[in-house]
Amino acid sequence: MNTTALQDGLCEFRWHGRGGQGAISSAKILAAAAYLAGFKGVTSAPSFGAERRGAPVTASTRLSSEPIRIYSQVESPDVVVVLDDTLVRTAKATAGLKPGGWLIVNTPRDPDKLGVGEEFCIATADATGAAMDVGLLVSGVAMVNTAMLGAVAKATGFVSLDELKEAVAEAFSPKAAQKNFEVAKLTFQRTKIRLAAGRAAD
């Protein structure tokens, strides 16, 4: 378990996606993988309420070395994961993000090209491209949610690829799990990172 980045033993994630992209599923898989990684406290929840396909949605994840007792909504996340890069601006993805926190975006662009302030660590990965490369398509649409788990693993180090593999295997049929893990692994390798100003690499 990598807890070096945990403040007060707690790390809070907010996920931004569009209804149907699988942000909630990824959030749940990350929680399961983190439990396997040794975090005693893991929770993931959708933003509460009604959802529509294509409309912006959010989800949240909390990871902690202790069982989690805070169930209220995440206000100031340590990590923000964005499945659709148009949401970085339109959904104000960095709102509340702690200085030095991670912004992890599905985009072919380099971290420096996102136009996001130097106070945040940025990881970018072309999850859409990776999903197309491994043929992870549903109704012709690239599924990017599990791909982004690879980027989260690479950027934060909270979970390893092995733990992701096991959590993905629990969440899908064997055939689907294989492809979903393959894409996460590919994205892990392709993730580009720019640390916040003044923050040295671990």
Partner: peptide
């Protein structure tokens, strides 16, 4: 509802 019904935990 939601706070527990839709939130995963161990």
């Amino acid at each position: 509802g939601y706070i527990l019904s839709h939130t995963v935990m161990p």
